[in-house]
């Protein structure tokens, strides 16, 4: 199919403090129905969206962090996290939720969706996209 475009959703905001993170996630889930080549990028405070152990019980608002684990079901399995943004926030890959997908072309083997990339690598990935949507 030649009409498949490369879509990149950039996430740069922390969850809960503003509505951007949840809105972006909803747009990604809706957009997944159009069967395009979708990637997500997390940079700046966006990396906080993926931190594990979120518990919003005392805030009385929805904890949407479990929804990121459903992205694999929606065939969204290229999730790039910028290394520099993690480091500036004292975070490592171990602090993030282990997002997985099942690889259809490899007997449904379970694989990691998150790839930590440097700013230079991220720049290259952004160059390759047909459409970039920033949140």
């Amino acid at each position: 199919m030649s009409d498949v475009k490369k879509f990149m959703y950039i996430n740069r905001k922390a969850p809960y403090g503003t509505i951007y993170a949840w809105e972006a996630l909803e747009v990604v889930l809706i957009g997944a129905a159009f069967e395009q080549d979708v990637s997500l990028a997390f940079m700046d405070d966006g990396v906080f969206q993926l931190v594990k152990g979120q518990d919003t019980t005392e805030l009385g608002i929805k904890n949407f962090s479990p929804t990121y684990s459903a992205l694999g079901d929606y065939d969204v399995n290229k999730i790039y996290v910028e290394k520099e943004s993690l480091e500036a926030r004292g975070l490592t890959l171990d602090d993030l939720m282990p997002l997985k997908y099942e690889d259809e072309d490899d007997d449904w083997a379970e694989k990691d969706s998150i790839r930590v990339v440097t700013a230079a690598e991220m720049a290259e990935i952004l160059e390759q996209q047909d459409v970039v949507l920033s949140f």
Partner: peptide
């Protein structure tokens, strides 16, 4: 309960 969303029909069918 697990993902906090109602799945899209395509995802539901597969699952």
């Amino acid at each position: 309960d697990e993902y906090q969303i109602a799945p899209a029909v395509r995802v539901l069918t597969k699952a």
